[in-house]
Design a protein around this nucleic acid. Sequence first.
DNA 1: CTTATATCGTTGCAAATGCAACAATGTCAA
DNA 2: TTGACATTGTTGCATTTGCAACGATATAAG
Lengths: 141, 141
Amino acid sequence: MNAFDLTRFLPYQLAILSQHVSGELAAIYGARFDIDVSEWRVLAHLNHAGAVSVRDIHKVVNMEKSKVSRAASRLEARGLLTKKTDAKDKRLVALALTPQGNDLLAQILPLAQEFELGLIEKLGKGRSDDFRAAIQAILKE
Amino acid sequence: MNAFDLTRFLPYQLAILSQHVSGELAAIYGARFDIDVSEWRVLAHLNHAGAVSVRDIHKVVNMEKSKVSRAASRLEARGLLTKKTDAKDKRLVALALTPQGNDLLAQILPLAQEFELGLIEKLGKGRSDDFRAAIQAILKE
DNA sequence: CTTATATCGTTGCAAATGCAACAATGTCAA
DNA sequence: TTGACATTGTTGCATTTGCAACGATATAAG
C-alpha cells in the first residue's frame, strides 16, 4: 500500500487554494455587482491599460479568446465598455471602459485590494514577499 | 488613474499558478492514461483509503457529488473500479479499485510524485515547508 | 407502526466551456 | 499587383459543468 495522500499533494493543494480564494473574492464582487470572473479580469485589465484588443487580454490574462470575446460582449451590453474597430488594423477590436465601467471599477477595486490585504495578513506580514517569490519560482519555465 | 495591476494581484496569481500546475500534471497522466482531473482525484483518493462512498470523496476532495458520480461511472465502465451498494446503508455506494485500477494507479503515482518533487526543487529545497505553511494559513477557517 | 424529515447518489436540464471553422483583414514575397 | 499565407474576433457545436429535483433508503419522534 502506497503512502500517497492526495490532500498533501502540492498540485492538489494549489487547486484547492485557488478555488477557495477565487470563490471568496467572486462572492464579493459577484453579489454586489453581478460580475463573473471573466468579466472581472477584462475590466481589471482595462483599468490597467487604456484601450486594448481582445487578443491582448487573451494573452496577458490567460483566457481563451472566445471567453474574452463573450465577456466583452456582455459588458458592452451592460454599457460598461465599448467595442470599436481599430482604425489602423481593422482586424482588431479596441475595448475601452465607458464612464459607467470606470465607476463600477472604482467601486470594485478598493474591495479587491482590501481582500488581498486580508490574504497578506493571514500569511503574516513578513512572509508575503516570500510567498510571491515562490509562486514566481514555480511559474518560471 | 489607479495603479492596480491584475497580474500582480494575489488571487489572480494563484489562479494562474493552479491552472499552470494542474495543466502540466494533467498532461502527464492525461496523455498516457486518458484520465482527467476528476478521475485522477477519485483514483488517488481510493488509493489512500480502501473502499469509500461518493459522499466521502465529495467532501474530502472538493468535488461536486455529481462530478464524483460521473467520474466514478466512467472509471467503472473502463474496469478501473467497482461500485456496489453498501450492505449496512443501502444509500451508500462503496467504490473500490479493481486490480486494473490498482495497476494503473501504480503507474501514475510515481509520475505524480516525481512531478511534485520537481515543483519543490523549483522552490529551493528549504522553502517548500514555508510554502506549504503559507497555503494552510490562507485556507485556515 | 406511522409519519415526518434527512441523507445519498443519479439524472435532467440549462448554462458555460473549449475548440475548430469561418469571414474579414493584414503581410509579404514574387 | 497578385496570390499565398497569417492573424483577429466571432460563432457553431459538442462536451462539461453546476444545480435542483428525484427515488430510494435511513433516522427520529410520536
